[in-house]
Computed example of a mutant assay.
Amino acid sequence: MPGITLTLSGAPDAALASQLSHELTELTARVLDKQPSQTMVIVGFVDPSLWFIDSKSLENLGRNSFRLEITITDETTTVAQKRRYQRESYDLLSERVGNVHPHSNVHIIDVRATAYGYGGVPQAEKLWG
């Protein structure tokens, strides 16, 4: 059950959000071996004047940025898969967003199977009964 939260600098753009939702779901399935039907994506936008790196706004820096956070069940992916996902998702988002600050980032968050779930059922019960 990957949960993806993507935050982008800039004005809300429904077409871009939809495109990235599709592309990130596909990438997550292909690289991390996750089910698209169980992949949730939330996309948010932050005004560049309110996003700071080293106390300077992206607006003042003249750059764009993104932060991708994905929660996955601990020990369901390998280090190699995570490394590949880091690179491919960073490259994808850098290309789509353009002019990104090098501190744009990807966080893969491993969560214990007993600590989260969906439909009111912990992930551990779905995995191991």
Rank of each mutant, 00 (worst) to 15 (best):
M1P: 15
P2E: 04
P2V: 06
T5C: 13
L6C: 04
T7G: 07
L8Y: 01
S9W: 00
G10P: 02
A11R: 14
P12D: 08
P12I: 07
A14G: 08
A15E: 05
L16D: 09
Q19K: 15
Q19H: 10
H22V: 14
H22N: 10
T28N: 06
A29W: 04
V31P: 06
L32P: 02
L32I: 02
K34N: 04
Q38Y: 12
V46Q: 03
D47Q: 07
W51A: 00
F52D: 03
E59K: 11
E59R: 09
N60S: 13
G62R: 03
R63K: 15
N64Q: 09
R67M: 10
R67E: 08
L68V: 08
T71A: 15
V79Q: 14
R83Y: 12
R84L: 13
Q86V: 14
R87W: 11
R87T: 15
Y90L: 10
L92I: 01
L92C: 06
L92E: 01
L93Y: 06
L93F: 04
L93G: 06
S94H: 11
S94P: 08
V97C: 01
N99D: 13
H101D: 09
P102W: 00
H103P: 05
N105G: 12
N105I: 08
I108S: 05
I109R: 08
A113Y: 06
A113K: 12
A115I: 05
G119C: 07
G120P: 03
V121A: 04
Q123I: 08
Q123T: 12
A124W: 12
W128I: 07
W128M: 10
